[in-house]
Every structure is written in structure tokens, then in C-alpha cells.
Design a protein around this nucleic acid. Sequence first.
DNA 1: TTTTTGCCGATTGTCACCAATCAGTAATAA
DNA 2: TTATTACTGATTGGTGACAATCGGCAAAAA
Lengths: 223, 223
Amino acid sequence: MALTALKRQPAEQLATDALRDAILTGSVKLGERLTEVELADQFKVSRGTVRLALHQLSSDGLVVLKPYSGWSVITLEPRDMWEIYTMRGGLEATGARLAAEQLDEDGARQLEQAGELLFEGVRNAVGLDEIKRRDFALHRCIVELAKNSRLSHHYRLVEQQVRLFLSTTYSENYKEAVIEHHRPIVEAILSRNPTLAATLSADHCMSEGNRILRASEETDDRT
Amino acid sequence: MALTALKRQPAEQLATDALRDAILTGSVKLGERLTEVELADQFKVSRGTVRLALHQLSSDGLVVLKPYSGWSVITLEPRDMWEIYTMRGGLEATGARLAAEQLDEDGARQLEQAGELLFEGVRNAVGLDEIKRRDFALHRCIVELAKNSRLSHHYRLVEQQVRLFLSTTYSENYKEAVIEHHRPIVEAILSRNPTLAATLSADHCMSEGNRILRASEETDDRT
DNA sequence: TTTTTGCCGATTGTCACCAATCAGTAATAA
DNA sequence: TTATTACTGATTGGTGACAATCGGCAAAAA
């Protein structure tokens, strides 16, 4: 008798996750219109269930509802990118500060591991998607080390929005910068320097934000 | 013809707001159990509507759902207070920094006004509730000056949680400290010093958090 | 032509009913 | 007695039908 507990998922949760995933992977586009009946048909659940899912995602800031009129996936203007990256910077700075203040043996090990995984990936030139994944994982690791569930929650929401336009914005040649951007942050935390860790994190996000903002402006110019 | 647009509110919104208000004012207690049917009866709406409202408040972190079992208002341990005040500090620091960076004539006027309203209230000894209101208003004013809708949104959520245990934690004798705590922050922003504004804001929240944490520990000791 | 009015299809908003699940209790068997 | 099973009430999970609202279009009036 050593069976793993199988977790039932209520349909509302499944629908929410499925739709969220569809939005984040870009299989439903930004600004696309969503109707409750159509989604209900596709997911093979009732409208009420879809409705609940949509409201959840609305709280997460991924879709918006115009009353009695319709749902649609949010759109992202340059202004939104600024907002999102500013938020990310602020939250990560808080996270990095707390992480550095409270770092223990176990946390140090996790952080080193997450960092090394990213750096190793860059050196061995694994796929760009994989690098992105490890990049996100490192940032998330830092935030988790703050041991603040509310911070983690808010950060997850912002991270989602980052993914949202990262799925449209590409960049092959920023790989080299990854190591030099992240290494100092990791080391500041490992050496338990809260102020430095916070400053570096905020700056890193700002420069990332500016880089992506510039990239998207170039794209806009072409059109 | 100069009639103000009357805004119809869907029942879901009304229910959400009413329940939120009931929780924040303490007319439903922390940890109290909530059933969908009972709420539906009281609000004179259907269960589906209440259900939607509860899910919304769940996203806001005010209530929690144990699947197939029941809803209840969240409870707040000392650990939660630490989390909340840490968050608040981080967000306000970000807000204050941005406010100082982008301050314009109009913003400066609003900030001075909000500050003066609070300080004047303290000097003239208006009610404690009124002081709290003006205190919140000043903090909110600063965050709004950052002109970042996402920051405002996240801050509102955290502010709600602050109210949640401020409704149970009292303190008559912190009035004197109010001016000396807030004045420097306001002036740092007015003098457009982002770094100082951020630091002061974070420190202010931390000390507030510690004060309330101590107060609640004393209360716990008595029981 | 221009403005107003009424209509219609699409979509969300609301409701009442039934199903699934949980937690505690009583009945039953060892 | 003790452990297992079956039952029961309460609560959430899910569905289909109906009502309210919106936006655009066509008909009618000016």
C-alpha cells in the first residue's frame, strides 16, 4: 500500500488553467475576442463554468470584460510594458533583499543550483526557449527565498504578464548578457548583502524592460 | 440637458462589493464561515451570483475555499502581518521612487494637500478613524503619483489586508508619531529625491509593521 | 438628406434545479 | 470492544433555461 494521492481537479480549475495556458502560449492572440458559449463548446463544459474561469483570469489581469458586451484578451501597449517591468523590478528588489537577509544553507544551495543551471545552459547553447525557462526559474527561485507567500503570489501575476509579451518579442543575441546580468545578483544574495541585491535586481529589470521596449519599438517602426 | 450618467451595477459587482465591505469593516469576523445559500438569501440574489462574488474575493485573498467543503474569511497570524507589511513596504517604496522621479506641478499640489490634510487632522485632534482614513489617503496618493495602474492595483489588494487587521488592532498614542513619520517622505518626494523617498517609505512601513506586530503580541499575551 | 425611433441578433447576467463530494454518525460485523 | 461499513445532512460543483442589455441597422419621420 503505497499509492500516491490522485488529485481531482474541479472543472472550473481545469478550464481556468487551460484558458490561461492558451493565452500565455499565444494560441489565442492578444486582443482576441472570447465568447462564453464558444469556449463552453470547446471545453465541453457549461457556460457557468467558463464564466467563473473568465472572471478568475480577469482578476489575474489577462482578460477584460465589457459588461453585457463581451470578453477579450488584454492588449499590451508600450506603456503597459513599462508598467509591468517597473512592477517586476520592484517586486524582485523586495524579494532579493529579503532573500539576502534570511538566506540559510538550504536556500543557498537552491540558489546556486538555479544559477548554475542557467549559466551552464547559456555556455552549452541549449535552445532559446530552454534558456528563457531557466531564466524565469532563477528569478522565481530568488523570490521564493524571501519566504513570503504574498510576494510570491503577486510576483506570479506579474510574471504572467511578462510572458505575455515575451511570447511575441524575440531576441537571439542577448544570450551573452545573461551571465553578466545575473551572476552579480546571485552573488550579492549569497554574500548576504540585502541592499546590493535589491539594487542590482531593480536595475536588471529596468534594463531588461528598456531592451524589450526598444525591440518592440523597432518592430512597430517596420510596420 | 446636463444629467449625470447613472451607472447600473450588475448584481455580481454589488454582491462582491457588499461582502468585501462587510469583511473589511469587521461585520463578518476573521475566520468566520460563509455559506453560499445563506449569503444568497441575505443578498436576495441567486447562488451563482454569490459564488462569483466569493471567487472574486478569493482572488483578492480575503476568503478561502476548501473544495466541496466551504468558504471562510481568512485568518491572520503574526506571520501574515509580517508578510503584508513587507509587501506594503516594497510597493510603497517603488511608488515613492516613481512618484519622485515623475512629479509634476499638479502632482505636487495633490501631495501637499493630502499631507496637509493628515497633519492638520492630527494637530486638531479629529477622531482616530478619520486620522486613519487620511493616513491611508496619503499613502494612496503617493502610489497614484507613480502613474502605474498595475502598481495601484496590487497596492489596493495589500491595503485591504492591512485594513483587515487594523480593524482589530487599536492604538491611541501613535498620533504624535504620525507627523514625524510622514513629513520626511512627503518632502523627499517634493524635492524629487527618488532614492531617499523609497528608503524612507520602506522604513516607515517596516516600523509600522513592527509596532502593530508588538501590539498584537501583547494582546495575545493577555489571552 | 438627416435625425430619430424601433427592431433584432448577439452576448452577458441571473436563476433554480440536480449531481458530486465531504465529514460525521450510526449500524454492523469481527 | 474495536474496526469497518453504510448512511445522512450539509455544502459546493455543474448545467440548462430565461431575462437584461448592448450595438448596429433599418424603417420612419422631420
